[in-house]
Amino acid sequence: MSIQSSIQARDTFSSTTIRSILSDVYAADKANTDNKIDSSTIVSLIRKATARRIDSAAQFSQAARPDLAEKEQREADFLSQFLPPLLPEAEIDQILRDVIPEQTSQFQGDPRRALGQVLKAFYAKVDRSSVDPNHVKRRAEALLLE
């Protein structure tokens, strides 16, 4: 179901969920006074909103509130249909293996000190919205220690 059709069909679940995301997008756009936000920022906002809902669903489940947990999980599932797939781990590793030698050459003693430069070079090649930043950091740390 598209955004416009769910609002026009007066589907309260879909339209409420979409409006909450639009509120986040408008706030981010207003905070960015330089120019309009790009699509990768919008994807990041949707990913964060989905993650928040998944976390909330888990907390509601632990608090014995299955009704609220189910609502949050439904919203997370609904939002996830608007997200592009994340890069596979093998592709992330390959890109990291390409940038690590370039960035670690100046840090001969401790390659972990190069982590910031490795991540910077990685994100110069890859859109942030197509990866989980925490996963990329863990993979970079693991590859630096090899």
Rank of each mutant, 00 (worst) to 15 (best):
I95R: 02
L87H: 00
Q81M: 02
I100Q: 09
D34I: 01
S23G: 08
I92M: 15
R97K: 14
K30L: 09
L68R: 07
D93T: 05
V25F: 09
I46G: 03
D67F: 06
A49T: 11
V99I: 11
D67I: 07
K36M: 09
V43E: 13
A57V: 06
L22G: 14
T33K: 02
I37C: 07
I42R: 07
D38E: 06
I54E: 14
A57N: 04
E102F: 03
A27Y: 03
Q103S: 10
R74K: 15
T41L: 11
T17N: 06
L22H: 13
V99C: 14
Q59D: 12
K71R: 08
S20C: 05
E91H: 02
S44A: 14
L79N: 09
Q62G: 13
Q103H: 03
L68V: 00
D29E: 11
Q59S: 13
R47D: 01
Y26C: 04
T41S: 12
L96W: 04
D34R: 10
S44T: 15
R47V: 05
D38C: 03
S80Y: 05
D98V: 07
A76H: 04
I42W: 08
R74Y: 13
A57Q: 06
S44K: 15
A49N: 13
Q62H: 11
I37D: 01
A58Y: 01
I54P: 04
I100P: 04
L45S: 07
I18H: 07
I92C: 08
L22V: 13
E72F: 03
F78I: 07
D93P: 00
D67C: 05
Q59H: 13
A90W: 01
Q103E: 11
K48R: 15
A69I: 02
S61D: 00
S80V: 06
R65G: 00
I21W: 10
R97A: 08
E91C: 00
K71A: 05
T33S: 00
F78W: 10
S56Y: 06
I95T: 08
A64Q: 12
L86A: 04
D55F: 09
A31E: 07
E72C: 11
K71D: 02
Q73I: 14
A64S: 10
Q59A: 12
P66T: 06
V43P: 04
A58L: 02
P84Y: 09
K71T: 03
A90F: 01
R47W: 09
Q73R: 15
L45D: 08
I95A: 01
L86E: 05
V43G: 05
D77T: 15
D38H: 06
E75M: 09
S80T: 09
Q73F: 15
T33I: 00
L45P: 10
L45W: 04
D98A: 10
V25P: 07
R74E: 13
Y26M: 05
I100L: 06
V43R: 09
D67Q: 11
T50F: 10
F82K: 08
E91F: 01
A31G: 05
A27C: 02
K36H: 08
S80Q: 12
R74H: 14
I46S: 07
Q62S: 14
D67V: 07
A51G: 03
I46E: 07
D29H: 03
P101K: 14
A63P: 00
L45F: 11
S56A: 14
P84E: 06
A51W: 03
Q94P: 01
R47F: 05
D38S: 07
D29N: 13
E91T: 01
I18Y: 12
D67M: 04
I37G: 06
